[in-house]
Design a protein around this nucleic acid. Structure first.
Lengths: 210, 210
DNA sequence: TACTGTTTTAAACGTATGTTTGAAACAACC
DNA sequence: GGTTGTTTCAAACATACGTTTAAAACAGTA
């Protein structure tokens, strides 16, 4: 019960509840009850609900982006000036994502759901926060994607990138529900890593379509 | 100002506001103010906020599903027992979607945003309502997709269908923001029909990847 | 032990929400 | 023109929310 335990408990509860119900539908009372702390603790430790939402994103995204940055540097070094391969870029992203879930494999799905919410739900403050905090890495990655798909026009590439993004966010954000459905309908059980393994060839094929 | 004008004005306002901000973030006061009607009119005409949400979906989905049902019947007749083609099935879906927007081309994007919200945001009542109301048509369409992709294992098909769904919902739901971004970054302007035209080959290629 | 700064607590604050009410306004029909 | 059923309206209701407050509990130090 050191100082940081309360904040961490709040972040854990908020992450889970936000990803289940969305931001507006999750009250601070829901969060603090689940975390087993006092209601006022959120405003004491984070300042406001908005700041808590941003903190939830930062806790996931900061290790992720640091890991990805390192991977991109290594990859570019390995390339020695050769053009990057689309499939390899996607696998880089995928492995960085899997790693930043920590020990909890459900974490990536939860986070993807949050990411989807950030874009569909209002939360203009969140989009600004994300762009400001992680925009540089995003642009670097996009430059590599561009180098890996020289045959595409800028317009075609722009749209296909968003098709990929959509397939990824949507599928991974519904991953636990979908794996449950797959298990029920098909009798096959799979974890999120296997889903990503199926996703990458799909994206690569779509991206390089005629 | 006949009897149905109030209900219609409420539906129009609700559809737009819900798709902009989400369900929980849109208050009945927002809706009635925008619609220029009295606050109590929502509960008088629809019974509750939940019922209003369902009515918004039904107004779009019912004509859409009736149109698609007809198209599927026609298509199967045209096939004369031959196996369906994936690309044609996707185009059927796309044209039924474009048609049910009525005269307003922004309508499809708005509705896709609502559909995304229905899955990401809580709204368990909505998912049940949708499954109960439109589940049969969904299963029929899936059977055709299966016939069009005989080489895929059930598991592979299951996941790729959701990859397609994700790319579609995500992209079309963000269509106006994305077209604005494309116009700003690339100088190219495009409407939602052109986006769908780019989407279909992407999906077909991903679906039939090795 | 007494003093300091930090953290937790219960209670309250002001505001906004979905819903209900009962009267007023309206339309249609005999 | 009076009557009936439907629709609108302003006002109020109860409830839930995010936030603030001031006191209590705690931890570390001298």
């Amino acid at each position: 019960m050191a100082q940081k335990d309360t904040a961490k408990a709040i972040l854990n509860a908020a992450e889970e509840l936000f990803s289940e119900r969305g931001f507006a539908e999750t009250s601070l009372r829901n969060i603090t009850t689940k975390a087993g702390v006092n209601l006022a603790a959120v405003n004491y430790h984070f300042g406001s609900k908005k700041a808590l939402i941003q903190a939830v994103f930062a806790r996931f995204l900061t290790p992720f982006s640091e890991g990805l940055e390192q991977d991109l540097r290594d990859y570019q070094q390995r390339l020695q000036g050769r053009p990057p391969q689309l499939g390899e870029l996607l696998r880089l992203l995928s492995s960085a994502s899997m790693r930043s879930g920590g020990d909890n494999p459900r974490r990536l799905g939860m986070f993807m759901r949050l990411l989807g919410l950030a874009y569909t739900q209002g939360q203009g403050h969140l989009r600004k926060f994300l762009r400001h905090e992680y925009g540089t890495l995003f642009r670097e990655y996009m430059a590599l994607i561009t180098a890996a798909t020289p045959d595409l026009s800028n317009e075609e590439r722009f749209w296909r990138i968003h098709f990929m993004l959509g397939a990824t966010v949507f599928t991974l954000s519904g991953a636990d529900a979908l794996t449950a459905m797959a298990e029920h309908d098909l009798g096959t059980s799979s974890d999120i890593a296997q889903v990503v393994d199926k996703l990458v060839p799909f994206l690569a094929a779509g991206m390089t379509a005629a």
